[in-house]
Nucleic acid binder design. Structure first.
Length: 422
RNA sequence: GGCGGGUUGCCCGAGUGGUCAAAGGGAGCGGACUGUAAAUCCGCCGGCUCAGCCUACGAUGGUUCGAACCCAUCACCCGCCA
């Protein structure tokens, strides 16, 4: 049980902006406080960017507070203008509904919904039947346009690609969510990423005007990486999704194992529930023996377990050990090899085997046959850890491990399996 | 509704009749060095039955021996005016 979630979040570097922290602290220690975090269903699954929100909710829940996860079925129709240079493409109703359903299920995995300890809501509930007139009179009246124009999310767009009235109105909807959750559930705190700060304060202003109540908001900092890359982009540039169908647990695990030494300490604080002593020990370990990647492995283990569960984590850890270990592939027993390759991308073929370039394409190691040929020409293609020189080479039966497996590798760390069916 | 500007490869962006699969930058990929890290250097970076061919510069149609580049129409974006 964590006595003061604010101290915890502060230690972890998770507080970027806040309303009066002392007041909030007093409320939190006086009894359970209801708080909420919302994410929009812009995709069918959450990505690692949403993870901090869920983790912050859990910190509060562990301290005995009541958490609400909001899937923005209404705001998902509109699109948050923040952090974008141009207008969003509107999603269809079917897409939004589908996304809300899947995202809701993911949120439910992170917060405890039993016995009223947590709640899952969809803001379409209180927006669907709201009339335009009511909205403009009851909500819009409280928003000075000059204040709205001054918000970073809007200002950036006015200087750039412009903004539609639709997206301009987004902050009113989010503010209304907070008001609604205050009225319905007694919610007194909203948390979000620092890019949401303008929207969080819009809610505070609205509630102060309408209800005369001073509520709270808390934001965490934008997650950055030392190299300045966008955080959470997997190798190849795609997002790291929480859904195993979109990002395999193996790829997810590997992403964290490969985190920069300079970032791993911060990520351990942001994304894990490890205690202070253990994190500091891992910091020291990184400083002393960076090549062991102890902190990265622990980070990867914790996060993969959090998102995909312990059983799956054990499988991807075993696969990583087998494939990145110092030993020879030939020395792996059949069961270990089969299990490891089941975690990586893989393909099955029948003999006669296709050439190497085709195998690379089939397993997805190369995006096209041209790319596969290029990889071979550049000296980055390996079969069973042996570099291949000829893209049309057909591996002979004597190359098969345990009579049926080939381990394909592109570059240093991208692996795939081929199973030859008999 | 009028006038002006724009739409180029994953992103930004140059190109304004042949020498353009299209400069440059970013991202990404491979090699060397390493630690499945970073930095640095080198190479690659539309597809294919790969020394040749095919597809591509918003869409369609046209002019031309030849069009990303010229013309017409349409769509969308930005700005100014009404």
């Amino acid at each position: 049980m964590v006595s003061d979630p604010l101290d915890e979040l502060t230690w972890r570097g998770l507080i970027a902006h806040s309303t009066d922290l002392d007041l909030l602290r007093a409320e939190l220690s006086a009894g359970p406080v209801t708080l909420y975090y919302g994410c929009d269903p812009t995709a069918p699954t959450l990505h690692v960017g949403n993870l901090i929100g869920l983790i912050v909710l859990r910190w509060f829940q562990q301290a005995g507070h009541r958490t609400i996860g909001l899937a923005g079925g209404a705001t998902g129709f509109i699109g948050d203008p923040g952090g974008r240079s141009s207008e969003r493409t509107l999603l269809s109703e079917a897409e939004v509904n589908h996304n809300v359903e899947r995202i809701g299920a993911q949120i439910a995995r992170f917060i405890d919904l039993t016995d009223g300890r947590g709640l899952l809501v969809n803001n379409i509930e209180w927006t669907r039947d709201l009339s335009v007139i009511d909205f403009l009179r009851d909500i819009g009246k409280h928003f000075p346009v000059n204040v709205m124009l001054a918000k970073e999310s809007v200002r950036a767009r006015l200087d750039g690609g412009g903004i539609s009235y639709t997206e301009f109105s987004y902050m009113l909807l989010q503010a209304m969510d907070y008001l609604e959750l205050f009225r319905r559930e007694g919610c007194r705190l909203q948390v979000g990423g620092s890019d949401q700060w303008g929207n969080l304060t819009a809610g505070l202003d609205l509630i102060r005007r309408v209800e005369g109540e001073a509520l709270h908001a808390l934001s965490w900092p934008l997650v950055t990486s030392a190299t300045g890359e966008k955080f959470g982009k997997s190798t190849g540039g795609g997002s790291l999704w929480l859904d195993p169908e979109l990002t395999s647990p193996y790829a997810f695990y590997q992403y964290w194992v490969n985190v920069d030494d300079r970032d791993v300490g911060a990520y351990l604080r942001y994304f894990t529930f490890l205690d202070h002593a253990e994190i500091e020990a891992l910091d020291a370990e990184t400083a002393a023996r960076p090549q062991a990647r102890a902190a990265q492995r622990r980070l990867a283990q914790e996060l993969t377990t959090l998102v995909h569960g312990a059983a799956e984590t054990a499988r991807v850890e075993a696969a990583s050990r087998a494939l990145f270990g110092q030993g020879e592939l030939e020395d792996l027993d059949a069961a270990t090899l089969a299990a490891a390759l089941a975690e990586t991308p893989n393909a099955s073929v029948t003999s006669p085997l296709p050439g190497v370039a085709d195998l690379f394409t089939l397993t997805g190691l190369a995006a096209s046959k041209s790319a596969a040929r290029r990889t071979v020409a550049e000296g980055g293609a390996y079969v069973n850890n042996v570099r291949v020189e000829d893209p049309d080479l057909v591996p002979g039966p004597e190359r098969l491990l345990h009579g049926r497996w080939l381990v394909l590798r592109k570059g240093k760390r991208t692996l795939a399996g081929v199973e030859v069916e008999r």
